[in-house]
Design a protein around this nucleic acid. Structure first.
Lengths: 245, 245
DNA sequence: ACGACCCATATCGAATGGAGGCATAGGCGA
DNA sequence: TCGCCTATGCCTCCATTCGATATGGGTCGT
């Protein structure tokens, strides 16, 4: 912990009557999609908009899970640790992604900001009450969880059976597709996380990630651009490389 | 496909008025838990009880997902394939487990019986209608999906960061805990699946699985018993071994 | 019932290789 | 300038691959 906590909460929420949700850029992607104006207003009542610096830990595995979050800007990482420090990043969260589902009222992973982030913050109890009231939102959350489950299974295939090169290609492809679904251009891809984070997400070491990037660059599959951007030369080629075809 | 399809459906459902759910041994574990008698009756109306032989494939990745299943007896495996045949088993289903959640109305994995199994079979459409009607069931399903998500994250940590020995120990531990939650004794553990299946679940090869079992046997952590059973000598020791402590 | 045979699965040894570990050098931003 | 992140060469090692053998359950013929 640094002497000054760079990640302290700054409440930047607008007065409730302005309804921050109305102008939310990621509303269509997340749990608030398809809510009526009145329902949105009720949701806005219980949320708080917060901002954290890169590197700030929001919560750790095992903490009491009394808050749910929705990412509205920036990138987060979720991870689990082994006693000796080995780390597995279970997911990167982009704007529109939801975080905080828990089992036994305890977080099953730690959460840290990769870039500066802004989040909607919901007290768990009040959120649950609202879910009771709005089955539409409940269904939406369930559907998001189903999607995450499918993504988790893809990740298991990647971790268990893919080679280093296939892992990196799959990773770039995933970032590209997620960017696209958020209305950004799918190429070049912005890769905001460090080599170490990529390694801990793909079950590799930083050295292997680095070497593999070089190899893909040399074989003209990708180029590394300014500002952590990666240019994909042939999307179909990358897709083949990602599945060993 | 064998000349006779050993896995064909045999409808063994009792007449509707007998309400097969009333006597269901896994009701408390699954989606039907906490349903009232009347709701159970409605559920029973839309389900069919089916039985398949070991080795039968219920559906394959990419098939239209118009049916949901609930395992009532036996063990199933779910898996994904790469074009060249590499396989990752994403999960083993035991009695009480649910299967068939889908994205884009298409199954994201293939499902095959490991042992003879009996299943409750729900038409997707009618199940969805019932979920609308019984929010209690919707919540229960969401809670089951959340648990699965947490389990998937544990599995990512295992696949990405654990050694062969830690993987095998974690696997045995998981089987033991799941048996316990189903009211069976947690030791010795029944391990109904082949070395190849274990390998494809843990991201190893059959040889490594075999060698690791011998190694654990030699170092007196476990014993292999008759009938695919594994005796765990010290549960706490196994837990330490599973996390590299 | 019994043994011979077969096939699938499991086991084991030796050699190989892909990714890891370590050290160092280079680059970039604070 | 300092410190962190990244890149790369060299060597190591764990798990894989390949090959061979053992085991065990099931089937068939006598």
């Amino acid at each position: 912990m640094p002497p000054f906590d760079m990640g302290r909460v700054r409440d930047v929420s607008a007065p409730a009557e302005m309804n921050p949700c109305g102008a939310c850029p990621v509303r269509s992607l997340t749990v608030c999609a398809a809510l009526e104006a009145e329902e949105l207003r009720r949701l806005a009542e219980i949320l708080q908009t917060v901002r954290y610096e890169a590197g700030h830990t929001l919560f750790a595995e095992g903490d009491k899970a009394d808050t749910l979050y929705n990412v509205t800007a920036g990138t987060m990482k979720l991870y689990k640790l082994l006693p000796d420090g080995r780390r597995q990043i279970t997911g990167f969260l982009l704007p529109g992604d939801f975080m905080g589902l828990s089992v036994n009222e305890v977080y099953a992973y730690s959460a840290e900001a990769v870039t500066p982030v802004t989040l909607c913050r919901f007290p768990r109890k009040r959120m649950e009450a609202l879910l009771e009231e709005f089955p539409k939102m409940q269904r939406r959350l369930f559907s998001m969880a189903s999607n995450e489950l499918a993504a988790a299974q893809d990740q298991m295939l990647l971790l268990g059976r893919k080679t280093a090169k296939e892992k990196i290609c799959s990773f770039l492809l995933m970032l590209s597709q997620r960017a696209q679904r958020r209305g950004h251009k799918e190429n070049p891809v912005h890769v905001p996380m460090s080599r170490a984070d990529i390694a801990d997400y793909l079950g590799l070491t930083t050295e292997t990630v680095s070497r593999t990037f070089t190899q893909l660059k040399t074989s003209r599959v990708i180029s590394l651009l300014e500002g952590s951007k990666v240019q994909i030369h042939d999307m179909d080629d990358l897709l083949d490389q990602a599945e060993g075809a």
